[in-house]
C-alpha cells in the first residue's frame, strides 16, 4: 500500500444526504474518505441503516452524491456527463444482494448476461456476444444448458452466478459487491465466496465488499472499514482490525458474533445498549455516543475526526488520541 501509487478508487469527503418530506435531512453517507488500491478488496461493515449500501451505490453514481469527490484513477467522476459516465460503467460494476429482484424475470439467462454487451456493442455480431456470454457462464460455473432457462427456474445460488456473470461481462476493474451472499444458504454462500475470490485472483479485480457479516468480510477483505450512521468509525487492515479493534463499536460488533465454537459457549457477549439511532438531522459529535459505555463530554459538540493511531489503522474515537508520527 505505498502512498505514491494512485488509488483505483478514492473518495474525498463524500456525502449523500437525502431530503425528506418536510425538509429534514437523512445523513446516509456523511463524509467518507477512503482509498482502494488496484487488486485490493475493501470490506465495508455495518448494521442496517449505517449507509454502507448507499455508499457503494454513490461511488458508482447510481445515486448522485450530495457533495464530495469520487476519484477513479485520480480523475473526479462526479461531474462527468452521462455519455462519459456510460463509458465508465464498463469499468465500475455492481453485484446485488437479492438474486431474485436483481434479475429481470422476463429475460432468459443468456439475455440477462448479454444485456450489457448489447448496450455497449462490445462485439460486432449477436453470435459473438452470445459466445462471450457462454464463456462467462463457464467462468462463473453455470452450466451452459441453463442458457435458455428463465431465472425463476433456478435457485438462489445459480441466480447469483448469473448476476456475477453479468457484472463481469464488460471486463470491469472495480466491483461493488453489495451483500452478495447474505440471501443464500450457508453451503451455497461458501461456493459463491470461493468463486468471487477466484475471480479476483484470475481477473485482477478490485472489490468493495459491503456486508453486515463480519466473518465473511474477514475472510475476503484485505482492509476493512466499519461504518456507523454514515460515518467511518474505524478502518484498518483485516487482521489488525480483528486482533486489535479500538473503537468501542467495533469491539461490540466483533463480540456479538455467535461463533460456532463450543469452547466459547459461556463467553458473554459484550452487549451494547439500545439500538442504532435515527440518521435524520444528526447533530455533530460522535454518532455512537448515545450507546457508548465510555462516553464523555469530549464526544459531543463536534465531529470526531479519523486519526491514524497505528500504521494504516484509523479510528474516530476520543479514547484514541495517540496519532502516529505526531
Amino acid at each position: 500500500m505505498d502512498s505514491a501509487r494512485t488509488p483505483l478508487i478514492e473518495t474525498v469527503n463524500l456525502k449523500k444526504l437525502f431530503k425528506l418530506n418536510g425538509g429534514a435531512l437523512l445523513h446516509a453517507v456523511d463524509g467518507i474518505n477512503m482509498k482502494v488500491y488496484s487488486g485490493e478488496t475493501i470490506g465495508v461493515v455495518g448494521e442496517s441503516g449505517c449507509g454502507k449500501s448507499t455508499l457503494g451505490r454513490t461511488i458508482l453514481r447510481l445515486i448522485e452524491p450530495t457533495s464530495g469527490q469520487i476519484l477513479y484513477n485520480g480523475v473526479d467522476i462526479t461531474k462527468l456527463k452521462s455519455g462519459k459516465m456510460r463509458e465508465l460503467r464498463k469499468d465500475l460494476q455492481i453485484i446485488f444482494q437479492d438474486p431474485y429482484s436483481s434479475i429481470d424475470p422476463r429475460k432468459s439467462v443468456v439475455e440477462v448476461i448479454a444485456e450489457y454487451m448489447f448496450i455497449h456493442n462490445t462485439f460486432p455480431s449477436k453470435s459473438a456476444i452470445y459466445n462471450r456470454a457462454a464463456e462467462l457462464m463457464d467462468l462463473v460455473g453455470l452450466a451452459r444448458r441453463y442458457a435458455n432457462s428463465y431465472p425463476h427456474e433456478l435457485d438462489g445460488g445459480r441466480r447469483q452466478r448469473i448476476g456475477i456473470a453479468r457484472a463481469l461481462s464488460l471486463n470491469p476493474k472495480f466491483i461493488v459487491c453489495d451483500e452478495p451472499v447474505s440471501a443464500l444458504d450457508v453451503s451455497i454462500q461458501a461456493q459463491i465466496l470461493n468463486l468471487l475470490m477466484d475471480l479476483a485472483d484470475e481477473l485482477g479485480l478490485t472489490y468493495m465488499f459491503v456486508t453486515h457479516d463480519l466473518s465473511v468480510v474477514k475472510h475476503i477483505s484485505n482492509k476493512i472499514m466499519v461504518m456507523y450512521l454514515g460515518k467511518c468509525v474505524e478502518m484498518a487492515a483485516s487482521d489488525e482490525l480483528f486482533t486489535n479493534p479500538l473503537h468501542p463499536y467495533t469491539k461490540a460488533l466483533l463480540s456479538a458474533i455467535p461463533e460456532p465454537d463450543i469452547s466459547k459457549r459461556d463467553e458473554e457477549f459484550v452487549l451494547i445498549k439500545g439500538e442504532i439511532s435515527s440518521p435524520i438531522n444528526v447533530k455533530p459529535g460522535c454518532r455512537f455516543a448515545a450507546r457508548c459505555d465510555y462516553v464523555s463530554e469530549k464526544c459531543t459538540g463536534r465531529d470526531i475526526e479519523l486519526k491514524e493511531v497505528a500504521k494504516e489503522h484509523f479510528v474516530a474515537c476520543t479514547l484514541c488520541n495517540q496519532e502516529v508520527g505526531k
Binding site: S102, I103, H120
Partner: peptide
C-alpha cells in the same frame, strides 16, 4: 434491483423503460 442493474450497465432511461419496465 434489475432496473438499477441496467443503469449500472449503462442503459439510458428510454432503454430501461422499453426493455425492463414496460414488458413487466
Amino acid at each position: 434491483d434489475y432496473v438499477e442493474a441496467a443503469k449500472a450497465g449503462g442503459s439510458g432511461s428510454t432503454r430501461i423503460i422499453l426493455t425492463h419496465i414496460l414488458p413487466n
